[in-house]
Design a binder for these strands. Structure first.
Lengths: 380, 380
DNA sequence: AGGTGTACGTTCAATCCCTGAACAAGGGAG
DNA sequence: CTCCCTTGTTCAGGGATTGAACGTACACCT
């Protein structure tokens, strides 16, 4: 049980492993002081960890042994399906990224083709990295759509019409022969920014991904907060305008219908022709007044949602990711302005809204991080 | 150190104590099953706890022993300042309420008078309950206004104009000579409903108190979630109408300006004259069509906020408290209707909105519960 | 009523774990 | 070169948990 003696040992093993992982390389004496355990205990546990292959020991003058985290043998793969790209990445379990690759991908494709493409891309990446398939221990998979947290089966969605009813984790797992965990792209982005990016070291993060749609995710105590049925953090479907456009979620005037990339694209089509979100941002940076205005308007709508978020959760940090985030201050300043006007003053003062640092890599990286991060399983 | 064997024992002792306290009375076998410890361990620990005077053991047929929390020697007092009432309650630490009392109170009074009144009421209650002042170990204090979580000093507020800048916990503590913890009424209401009321046993609760104003509070894992600067859960100041009335928080069109009791009172004054919120609810129950309409409209506005809450936190349960909650279905049905229309479908299906069970006693009871409930201290 | 079964709490030996002390080995200062 | 300090290891000692065995009392069935 959770409180037996063996559990105590397990706790201490984990404590030492964590300490080693964080500090890089330590002697046993340092380890004993940092963990508060006795040198004797440290000695025996270190031996166990060495035998288990979890740490490496090198002599370092005197009786000193340098304990360092083991170059872990297993590798993990992250896969991220975006709206027009498919990205994969290969990393050590310790989160060191070894290789990364992307290809264009049509989001309209059905699940079998998509998964086949992912499989091919992974195999290719492994080949070029000189890594055998057997070394892959787990895969993280990101998808821009709703996933039933119980079953892992995808719900219907207008973004991913050909995927409803399939269990992508099981499917890809069958193809590759390794366990696959699946999650939506916003959750993964949040995880990635908290692990490597703008929210590094923060354990409480609100993240918004503004791409074609608007997704969001909340990390509480470093763990994904999913709520009662796995839809916590759905900021994209907060109602901004009760009489607004129909949204793919079935309601009206959702934030996504006002600030999602698709909407912005539609807005500039008459004057600029068909563009992508990235192109729109480029034009705005280039000084195009129309594109700037469209982005600023989106920021103001986003600000309304962030203000609600501030009143409800009073966050200290909100990270904005996704393609539109590349607009930087053009997007973030309007957000802050509106938050200042709509959120209650003390919450507005407390919050810092920043651009994500990982750009379009957030999804894949998050998939890597997700492989080893458990959920916070609570049903509010 | 934190990981020694004695610490493990300490952990298990605490685990058993907690379990007993929560469940009231248990046999050792039940205790073993609930905690996951072996009957042998439970046996020895229970003996220790008995010797230490922390639990009481009574025979209960067979070899069964009924373990119940010790009638703790210390008592606690709860104080709740409402808009027109001052309530105090006396309870054992184990949460058994011994006596309760209320008196009318003008919220316009300044802090010194208010605290003096509270002191008199407490002393009187103790006298009538036959309890000496020395038996009181701690006091919980509830106030309908903003409190700086760092300093405990009250912010400015139009509801409690005479309290800005004072430290009510220190002040009352000085008068009574015991430690006082202070919190706002919505937080306490949430705690009370989770301890005794509609959210009993739930560790994840969203609570809204709709009285003269609108307050709200979130419990995560049974602990108050305060956010970065202590304003998490401020649902009352979500913007519903950007061009609406000025709110005491300094913004415009907050939920409170549309659904707070004060607003409803103002709305019916032309036709019904000056009434209280309770009277308004009474009239509505009596069939008054105007009052019904005003309450239903408030419900619809509240629904907008609850819908946002659902999208962000995806709660399984929302408890509505405060004087207006007594309207019951007249208020809650419109809320549910709007939530169904505005929240994303899966979140709307998941949530259950119910009336609090504790009525106007929620505040005091929460103050009692608060004395022993720590914060969840996380800065999102 | 009687017998049987079952659940409960206690005891005890076995096992596991942490710690303090003793000890060997090596580096550095003087 | 010697002394001293630090480091890691070993070992006995004491705590803590557990499974099994045991005695007991109630409940139920016949």
């Amino acid at each position: 049980m959770a409180n037996s003696l063996t559990a105590l040992r397990e706790t201490n093993r984990r404590l030492i492993t964590e300490t080693v992982r964080k500090s890089g390389a330590l002697t046993q004496a340092q380890l004993a002081r940092q963990t508060g355990l006795s040198p004797a205990t440290v000695s025996t546990i270190v031996r166990e960890l060495r035998d288990a292959g979890l740490v490496e020991i090198s002599q370092a003058g005197g009786r000193r042994h340098l304990i360092s985290p083991a170059r872990e043998t297993g590798l993990v793969v992250g896969v991220d399906f975006g709206h027009s790209h498919l990205r994969v990445a290969l990393a050590e379990r310790s989160h060191r990224v070894l290789a990364e690759e992307a290809m264009p991908f049509d989001v309209g494709a059905r699940a079998p083709e998509g998964l086949a493409a992912a499989e091919r891309l992974i195999i290719g990446l492994l080949g070029r990295a000189g890594v055998s398939r057997a070394e892959i221990k787990a895969v993280g998979l990101g998808l821009p759509g709703p996933i039933d947290p119980e079953t892992g089966i995808m719900g219907s969605s207008t973004i991913l019409p050909g995927w409803a009813g399939v269990d992508p984790a099981a499917e890809l797992g069958r193809r590759l022969g390794v366990p696959v965990v699946v999650d939506n792209d916003a959750n993964l982005g949040a995880l990635a920014e908290a692990t490597w990016g703008a929210a590094k070291g923060r354990r409480e993060v609100a993240y918004m991904k503004i791409g074609t749609g608007v997704g969001a995710s909340i990390l509480i105590n470093g763990l994904l907060y999913r709520g009662a049925t796995g839809t916590a953090g759905e900021l994209g479907h907060i109602t901004i305008d009760e009489n607004g456009r129909l949204c793919r979620c079935g309601n009206r005037g959702c934030l996504e219908t006002l600030a999602g990339g698709q909407q912005l694209i539609d807005l500039v089509r008459p004057t600029h022709g068909p563009v992508t979100v990235s192109r729109l941002v480029e034009l705005a940076h280039g000084g195009d007044i129309g594109c700037r205005r469209v982005i600023a308007d989106a920021g103001r709508h986003l600000g309304v949602a962030v203000a609600s978020l501030c009143n409800i959760l009073n966050p200290g940090l909100v990270v904005i990711g996704g393609a539109l985030a590349e607009a930087g201050p053009l997007l973030i300043e309007p957000i802050m302005t509106v938050v200042g006007r709509l959120a209650i003053p003390s919450a507005a003062r407390a919050v810092n809204v920043v651009k994500g640092e990982l750009g379009e890599r957030a999804g894949v990286l998050g998939a890597l991080a997700r492989v080893q991060t458990p959920n916070v399983e609570s049903a509010l």
